[in-house]
Each structure stands twice: as C-alpha cells, then as structure tokens.
Amino acid sequence: MNIPTLSELTARGETPEILFWVGCAGSYDDRYKRVTRAFAKILIAAEIKFAVLGPEESCTGDPARRAGNEFLFQMQAMNNIQILNGYGVKKIVTACPHCFNTLKNEYPELGGHYEVIHHSEFLQQLINEGRIKLTDTTAYKGKKITYHDSCYLGRANGVYEAPRAVIEALDADLAEMKRSKTRGLCCGAGGAQMFKDAEKGNKEINIERTEEALNTGAQTIAVACPFCMTMMTDGVKAKEKEQQIKVKDLAELIAEAQGLA
C-alpha cells in the first residue's frame, strides 16, 4: 500500500487533513495489522488526505502509566508531543482506544493539544456524510452482530453510540450482551494486563466475556480495540468456536461492506 508519511508530506509542503495514529498493536500485531490496512483502505476510498508518522511513531506510554511507571510514560509522551507539535499536527484519528484516551486526555497537560478522534467516531462521521459508500451490505444484512465495548472507549470516554451506529449502517441485527455500555465487562487486557499473566483466580476474564458474547447467538463479535481483539479471539479459540464465530474490528466490517477487503 502506498501510505504517505507526515515527513514526506511536509517535505512536499503539504498538510494532511488528519494524522492516522496507528499504535503499536496496529503496527506489529499480525491480527491488528489487518485492521490498520482495512482502515487505511477506507480512508483512501473516502479520499481523505491523511498521513501516518511511520517509523517516527512510538508508544503513547499508556501501559507504562497504568502499570505505575510514570517516568517512562512521560518520557514517551514528551517525545511524541515534540514530534507531533513539530509537524503542527491538529487532528488525530486512531483505531486504538488506549492511544485515543492517552492522546486526548493525558497529553494536553504535557503540552500536546490535539483534536483526537477514535476510528469508530470517524467511521460514523464518514458514513453520515456519505463519504463511505456501503456497496455490499449483503454480507451482514440481518445477521446478528454483537458489539463488545472497550473500556477505554466506553466508560473511560463515553463513546458508546458511534460503534453501534457503524454496525447499524451495515443493516445488521445488533445483539447486545447482558453487560453492555456503561456496564460492559472488560476483556481483561486493560491497565497493562495485556503484558502480564492474570493474577490467580478461578476464571480468565476473557472467557467470562466470550461466554457472554456467545450467548447472544451472534456469528460476529465486533470490537474496536486491539487488546479486546486479542482477548476475544483467544476466548473464542478456547471455546473451540473459531470456525463459526468471527471476531472483527469495525473497520474490517466496513471495508468488507465497501468491497475493499
């Protein structure tokens, strides 16, 4: 794919409409790289003038801060802010709710002031504006999709409706889990849990959540976060349901319905 970096655009004297913040999972995790590409394809199809930081991007520091390492968080944050401010970035879109939360809520105090949008909100906006044309809605029309709320999108930032609006645009049958929206159950990966084993207990959190998702009878579990993606995919595998049940990011669902996949 031909994805412009901010340094290339700047060198040509151009300014993008948005900066697509890819995030570490979006850059390195094999499963989430597919989401990154799907979202990039949507942006290209919608003729959005965007750029990425590419090799200049680095972790926002979210897992360090949540694990308690404030030094490391602020080192990461300060470096990122210097780069972002250096390019005069105004508007950032990201597919990762953890990056979203950190960039939006925690960078301003350290000197980084940007308009930060999660990809679910951006997709909703593009659909509403007619910039995304869903040519092939047959794939999900009337099919049951359940949406798993990401904590860092939902409770942390109050984004509950945008992801659901995106799913509804597919003419799909949105089946809510028992615990959803403000009471949605975490996948188990937040607060830097992604990077360590769970403490001793009698069940893995992602299994508890996957069971709830399976109980809806949905064939597709929609997620909007790379960590949720990993946890729910693992949960479905542990339940040996990976043949029947697919875990997909919102961007993948839209890309499919646009015939871009």
Binding site: I3, V22, Y28, T36, R37, V52, P55, S58
Partner: peptide
Amino acid sequence: AADRFNWAKD
C-alpha cells in the same frame, strides 16, 4: 522500531 511501518508493505 525500524519495522514499525512494515504493515504498509505486506
């Protein structure tokens, strides 16, 4: 860190 942008290559 050098591989960060590889997602666009595959």
